[in-house]
Design a protein around this nucleic acid. Structure first.
Lengths: 229, 229
DNA sequence: ATAATAGTGTCTGTGAGACATTATGTA
DNA sequence: TACATAATGTCTCACAGACACTATTAT
């Protein structure tokens, strides 16, 4: 029966919203195969690790490899073929993780890199991880069209301008601020956002209202229209 | 290295649109575990089967177990835990397959059953397959809200009334026929549907226009609004 | 005062929702 | 003719898109 089994793991596409846009969490591999190369954080899954579930294994990957807990974590898909790992036919179930903007790393083997660098192919990754990153960011962009998912890239208390940045980074295109205000207003009516009454003073200009994100369910608020065209 | 591996398979939630709504394809297991119980068609994946990819393994599951080729096939998700299979920690990547309405089965170990029977718990399935069915049908319902996915449940040439049946079965609720006509009109403009000019005569009443489905991409046409409220 | 940034108001267009009306067939 | 079913038209509403305008701060 052992020969009926296969190498399987979870890999995490963890994103943080930084000054210059979305950033991807990478870890330098210390073991073969692909030792020394930058890769997505991940772990193998099999009965010996006592993971309660695949989702739990994904949590473990982030916790063990980077000492990080994500704000949002969702499974994207599973890829499997004979070529993606030199050890043979293998499976990877990969997850999209959204991190708080103040997430920091400890250790030389961990870093954030501009997501655009990876998508443009300027930074190569181990295995087929670049492909996984592409699929995960497509998922983010797709969900940003009709859900509030990008808000998980922000601190719990945020401003409209920050929300605009999060949506535009997720979508890869600009969004009318009036459109976003309408959506936030809709969320306010459903209890997903509340007005703290407090203000945030930018370097110059009118103070910003401080909003508070109050997620009522996993996956974000669902709008009934596309935000685009 | 063999001990780092895990039992993994693909399972298919294959749906056909019948007279009384959606029907689910089941197969009676002939081997342990769960021998004799009704289950989703599926196969184990590992290097020895020479599957080019996980998607290819899903195709193989339908072909080998039921001699069927789906009109549409998409991966839904992967579940993994220690309890779902008595053999130990295991993975299942499960797919949603949409079958042509005239799909027929050969063999006593294959049958279609009303999807509602399974969702209501009146028909129990092997392993955690009932849960997989629930998730796959949620995917179908979710996509029916903003894509044309239900059209893959119909023959390539179909009528508006048939499309209405497909959408309502997928969504689990009624849809205004005028709304659907508007959507089909939109698809027509984008080349996804063409008017054959031919008519179909129901038992009584005005003849129906015969439309032809011309998918331009996988996954169906994407509308920019929700079909619901 | 001026610049910078936040927030509101207005107008248009699209498409869903609901419902009435017309069209075209059978019995 | 009566009936059944398909197809079209009309009106309203919600909300995105674009853009103008007002509000509130720092320098």
């Amino acid at each position: 029966m052992a020969s009926a089994e296969v190498l399987a793991g979870v890999d995490i596409v963890a994103l943080r919203l930084g000054e210059a846009g979305l950033e991807l969490l990478l870890i330098r591999r210390d073991k073969a195969p692909c030792a020394g190369e930058w890769a997505l954080p991940g772990v193998l899954v099999n009965g010996r690790c006592a993971d309660a579930s695949l989702d739990a294994a994904a949590e473990r990957a982030l916790q063990d490899k980077a000492r990080i807990a994500p704000v949002h974590l969702e499974q994207v898909a599973t890829v499997g073929n004979a070529l993606r790992d030199p050890r043979g036919w293998s499976l990877s179930t990969f997850y999209l993780a959204l991190l708080a903007p103040d997430t920091e790393l400890q250790g030389d083997d961990l870093r954030f890199i501009a997501l655009a660098e990876v998508l443009a192919g300027h930074q190569s990754l181990a295995f087929d991880h670049a492909q996984l990153v592409a699929q995960a960011t497509e998922r983010l962009a797709g969900k940003a069209v009709y859900t509030s998912l990008p808000l998980y890239l922000l601190a719990p208390r945020f401003t409209v301008t920050e929300a605009l940045v999060a949506f535009q980074a997720s979508l890869g295109q600009s969004v009318q601020h009036t459109t976003l205000r309408g959506r936030l207003e809709k969320m306010k009516q459903h209890g997903w956002i509340l007005d703290t009454g407090e203000k945030n003073q930018p370097r110059m200009g009118r103070p910003q209202n401080l909003l508070e994100h109050r997620p009522q369910a996993a996956g974000g608020f669902i709008f009934d229209r596309s935000v685009l065209s």
